[in-house]
């Protein structure tokens, strides 16, 4: 599933990011890459999504959210990823 399909207040784990290199680099520098835990905060709108990863809230445009492949995180309490 993609991040855009995520449910509010649910934790996911990034499987892959399939977007142009420039944006992928920016996301990486912010700490979002394969395996990162990401929580969807507000995905009510058709477009942009708000999420939390690495302790910070972000707003992501629809195209970014559409191109981040995620899977449901098995245990939301588990803090050590990978």
């Amino acid at each position: 599933m993609t991040l855009k399909q995520g449910k509010n207040h649910t934790a996911y784990q990034v499987v892959s990011i399939n977007i142009e290199l420039k944006l992928e680099r920016r996301l990486q520098a912010l700490g979002l890459t394969d395996g990162t835990k990401i929580t969807v905060l507000n995905n009510d709108k058709k477009g942009a999504v708000t999420v939390r990863f690495r302790g910070t809230r972000f707003a992501l445009g629809k195209r970014i959210a559409d191109h981040i492949e995620v899977k449901e995180a098995l245990d939301t309490c588990q803090t050590q990823s990978m």
Partner: peptide
């Protein structure tokens, strides 16, 4: 058109 590439930190 339809960039939808917003990427912005939402501070507390």
């Amino acid at each position: 058109r339809a960039e939808h590439a917003l990427l912005i930190e939402l501070p507390e």
